[in-house]
């Protein structure tokens, strides 16, 4: 083992590129920024994000989506990119408690907000009841959509309303499982909601 993984190699390379780029003024107002946009490097903005309770101050390219920042810059790769078009739900995270498609939301728009990802579910090595129920009900098959399913389920349980088969279906409707294991997901969320 060399100690260099593909991910750490890619991570270092992109950090190198970012460090050598000349940056437009970060404190510029919209008008100055619009003028500075004409040519030159991609516009960047400094933002503050709370991710799974931890605050991060970072500089992002304006065009980066939230999921790009989570995966490629904060190394939180539990959140997946499937369609990258707000259709499949693999990128689902909570933004200020509501589930959203992180592929269809710019990171700059999340400035000052709280993000929760699948990595934030387990606490002190103990799985979230949802995760435990997912295991017990064989909810994941290939697993690609699972982190998104978990976050939509989390949003549902956070609402605190009575959970029914119908409300689970409605809550998970934006998360497509290509293995079509929907019924197991539904059973798992129902079980978790009942503390079973």
């Amino acid at each position: 083992m060399t100690g260099i993984t593909r991910r750490s190699f890619l991570g270092r390379s992109s950090a190198g590129i970012a460090a050598t780029a000349t940056l437009p003024a970060l404190t510029a107002g919209p008008q100055e920024k619009a003028a500075a946009q004409q040519s030159g490097p991609a516009p960047r903005t400094r933002i503050e994000l709370t991710v799974n309770g931890e605050s991060h101050a970072l500089e992002v390219e304006d065009r980066w989506t939230l999921v790009e920042v989570l995966r490629d810059h904060l190394e939180l790769t539990g959140t997946r990119v499937g369609c990258d078009r707000g259709e499949c739900g693999a990128c689902t995270v909570l933004l200020d408690g509501k589930n959203i498609y992180a592929c269809s939301y710019l990171a700059v728009w999340a400035d000052g907000k709280a993000v929760e990802t699948v990595e934030g579910l387990a606490r002190n090595g103990v799985l979230d009841p949802l995760q435990q129920a997912f295991i017990e009900h064989d909810a994941p098959q290939c697993g690609f959509c699972t982190s998104g399913q978990l976050m939509s389920a989390k949003a549902l349980l956070n609402e605190g309303a009575e959970v029914t088969e119908q409300s689970v279906r409605e809550a998970l409707v934006g998360n497509i499982c290509r293995c079509s294991n929907f019924l197991n997901y539904q059973a798992a969320v129902l079980a978790a909601s009942r503390g079973a």
Partner: peptide, 23 residues
């Protein structure tokens, strides 16, 4: 996506102005 600037106007008038100025 190709690079673009995200502009955050604080008022509606400013938003309309930014759109007009760009055009």
């Amino acid at each position: 996506m190709k690079a673009f600037a995200n502009l955050s106007p604080a008022t509606l008038a400013e938003a309309v102005e930014l759109l007009g100025a760009a055009r």
